[in-house]
Simulated scan of single mutants.
Amino acid sequence: MKDTFGRWLAQFAESSTSLGDLARLAAADPAWPNEPDRLQTYVDYLKQAGAAPSGADGSLRLP
């Protein structure tokens, strides 16, 4: 089975970090993109969902 960003992210669902927060939000969101597995797909989705740039590096802050 192909490794995907979603599968990688899911392994952090029990983590008490911001990555864990994202993993839990993604798991609970039926519209979370599974394919195509491109970074821009996820960045666009997060922006559309209300995530905002949070720093000089352009990282996103979850709503």
Score class of each variant (00 low, 15 high):
residue 15 S to A: 12
residue 51 A to E: 03
residue 24 R to T: 14
residue 47 K to Q: 11
residue 36 P to E: 01
residue 42 Y to K: 04
residue 29 D to H: 09
residue 62 L to R: 02
residue 10 A to L: 12
residue 25 L to Q: 06
residue 35 E to P: 09
residue 48 Q to M: 04
residue 47 K to T: 05
residue 28 A to N: 02
residue 23 A to K: 07
residue 40 Q to D: 15
residue 29 D to R: 12
residue 58 G to Q: 03
residue 54 S to P: 09
residue 25 L to E: 14
residue 24 R to E: 01
residue 6 G to K: 15
residue 51 A to K: 00
residue 22 L to F: 05
residue 26 A to I: 03
residue 10 A to K: 01
residue 18 S to D: 13
residue 26 A to L: 02
residue 62 L to P: 04
residue 51 A to N: 05
residue 59 S to H: 09
residue 37 D to K: 03
residue 22 L to T: 15
residue 38 R to H: 11
residue 12 F to D: 07
residue 2 K to D: 15
residue 5 F to W: 11
residue 8 W to E: 15
residue 14 E to N: 15
residue 47 K to R: 14
residue 58 G to L: 03
residue 29 D to F: 11
residue 37 D to G: 08
residue 15 S to M: 12
residue 58 G to S: 10
residue 41 T to E: 06
residue 33 P to C: 09
residue 62 L to E: 03
residue 26 A to F: 13
residue 47 K to N: 10
residue 33 P to Q: 06
residue 4 T to F: 08
residue 30 P to W: 06
residue 56 A to H: 00
residue 35 E to M: 08
residue 2 K to L: 11
residue 39 L to D: 10
residue 51 A to H: 03
residue 17 T to H: 08
residue 22 L to D: 03
residue 30 P to G: 04
residue 5 F to N: 08
residue 59 S to T: 00
residue 25 L to D: 11
residue 53 P to R: 12
residue 26 A to G: 01
residue 63 P to A: 00
residue 52 A to W: 00
residue 50 G to A: 08
residue 47 K to S: 05
residue 46 L to E: 04
residue 46 L to S: 00
residue 32 W to P: 06
residue 17 T to M: 05
residue 31 A to Q: 00
residue 24 R to V: 04
residue 27 A to D: 10
residue 26 A to K: 04
residue 10 A to T: 11
residue 14 E to R: 10
residue 20 G to D: 03
residue 62 L to A: 00
residue 33 P to G: 06
residue 9 L to S: 09
residue 48 Q to A: 14
residue 56 A to L: 15
residue 48 Q to R: 05
residue 28 A to L: 14
residue 58 G to R: 13
residue 62 L to D: 06
residue 61 R to E: 08
residue 54 S to M: 01
residue 27 A to L: 14
residue 34 N to T: 14
residue 51 A to R: 02
residue 45 Y to E: 07
residue 54 S to V: 00
residue 19 L to V: 14
residue 51 A to T: 02
residue 17 T to L: 08
residue 40 Q to R: 09
residue 60 L to I: 02
residue 33 P to L: 05
residue 19 L to P: 12
residue 38 R to Y: 01
residue 6 G to P: 01
residue 52 A to M: 09
residue 51 A to G: 05
residue 16 S to A: 10
residue 53 P to Q: 11
residue 21 D to T: 01
residue 54 S to C: 13
residue 18 S to A: 13
residue 8 W to C: 15
residue 58 G to A: 05
residue 47 K to F: 04
residue 36 P to H: 10
residue 62 L to S: 09
residue 26 A to Q: 11
residue 20 G to R: 04
residue 18 S to P: 15
residue 3 D to Q: 15
residue 5 F to H: 01
residue 17 T to C: 05
residue 7 R to H: 14
residue 60 L to H: 07
